[in-house]
């Protein structure tokens, strides 16, 4: 895996979707994901599919990369399609030895694969049009009102930004330690389950010990610059809800109403 390929979904095209407030984007994607579960027919899903494709077109990201984002769920997708095709009782379309494919099975398989694909497409739309920093900032701002309930929003926000920064660093470190242990004769793909699990200890222990020291050094460095968790902070980029964001909310609302009507009457 390439370095920096961890969060490699983001593609900057400068489209209108990229410039929408990250908070609005996060909330609307979550809204769309929940909305997806209220749709009960294939026609409804096809309408949502058309809507998702039009959003991808507006965002100008490559269509191929949207389909590539399905790769991690490919196993799940194939498994569910296979399961629904073969194990749904109903009117038999054709049989192949002991396997029988029913009409209901075909319908359910199409229905569920559309649902899974759309779930992935919507999360892809968020991560392709919003950089990690924007998403982290967006979550931070969305969590801020929860402070009223004594929810440690500042701690969680700090954890999010620290972890995003540390992923590439720790990746290099894990890689280096693994190679160092291999050069000393460590083997990772041998033996039974306990032996295999234990063989990873020489990687996990140094990583954890380094994590203490890094945490302490970073904490000292931040405190010496006057950082206090939960202190009043200003940010370089201000988030403001503008006309564009309002238009986006309105169009998503109209689209979801239209989809519900289309499902009812088509």
């Amino acid at each position: 895996m390439k370095r920096g390929g961890f969060f490699g979904q983001y593609q900057y095209t400068g489209s209108i979707l990229h410039r929408i407030d990250p908070r609005i984007k996060i909330l609307s994607i979550f809204y769309l994901i929940i909305f997806l579960f209220f749709i009960k027919s294939i026609i409804g899903y096809l309408l949502v599919f058309a809507f998702a494709l039009s959003l991808i077109a507006v965002s100008k990201v490559r269509l191929l990369s949207a389909f590539r984002s399905l790769r991690p769920i490919l196993f799940l997708l194939l498994f569910t399609v296979f399961f629904q095709l073969l194990f749904t009782p109903g009117r038999i379309l054709f049989r192949f030895y002991f396997l029988k494919v029913t009409e209901e099975g075909v319908n359910l398989a199409i229905y569920i694969s559309l649902r899974l694909m759309l779930l992935s497409f919507f999360t892809f739309l968020l991560t392709a049009t919003t950089s990690n920093i924007e998403i982290a900032d967006g979550f931070q701002k969305l969590m801020a009102p929860l402070r009223v309930f004594r929810f440690p929003a500042d701690n969680v926000a700090l954890m999010i930004s620290i972890s995003i920064q540390f992923v590439p660093i720790l990746f290099d470190e894990a890689d280096r330690i693994m190679k160092a242990q291999i050069s000393r004769g460590a083997e990772f793909n041998r033996g039974g389950i306990i032996k295999r699990a234990r063989s990873f200890l020489p990687i996990v222990l140094p990583l954890l010990l380094n994590a203490f020291n890094r945490a302490d050094q970073l904490a000292i460095a931040m405190e010496s610059r006057g950082f206090v968790v939960g202190g009043k902070r200003t940010s370089y980029k201000l988030m403001r809800i503008g006309k564009r964001d309002v238009c986006f909310i309105i169009s998503i609302t109209i689209a979801s109403i239209l989809i519900l009507f289309g499902e009812r009457f088509l």
Binding site: I162, S163, A219
Partner: peptide
């Protein structure tokens, strides 16, 4: 900070 690093 330690928790953030552990998550990563």
């Amino acid at each position: 900070i330690f928790a953030g690093i552990l998550a990563a």
